[in-house]
Amino acid sequence: MGSRAALLLRATPPLCALGKSASPKVLVQNKRFYAAKSSLQPPDVPRLAETARISLTPQEVEEFAPKIRQVVDWFGQLQAVDLQSVEPAIRADTEGDNLRNDVPEIFENRDAIIAAVPTYEDSYIKVPKVLNKE
């Protein structure tokens, strides 16, 4: 990474003083955050891929794992920010009471929705067997 970009990724020191116990050896990027917050395990890419239903090749696992770990470690800087008694914000402010009445409406272009289904037979969306385990 270019040095300029690296500067931008650094949080300001007073807000982001990481674990006091970090010895010089633990300052290696990837270990630093997990050492400071031992209850969090580093990302296990094959398991995450299974959870997210993405069949990764072994080459992809090898390629993605260090990158994901690098980014997740960088996420870790927020652990050091004092956020006690700060309310989380779900999104920017929006005005309430915007929900429409819960009344069904007929969508006119039904045929186009059905035309987009990859495997469609006799008014059914076809998928492989769901219950095939003992």
Binding site: P43, A49, A52, I54, E60, I68, V71
Partner: peptide
């Protein structure tokens, strides 16, 4: 793929 996996991790 990577962003989905990072998000899956963060929401675990």
């Amino acid at each position: 793929k990577m962003r989905i996996l990072m998000g899956t991790y963060a929401l675990s």
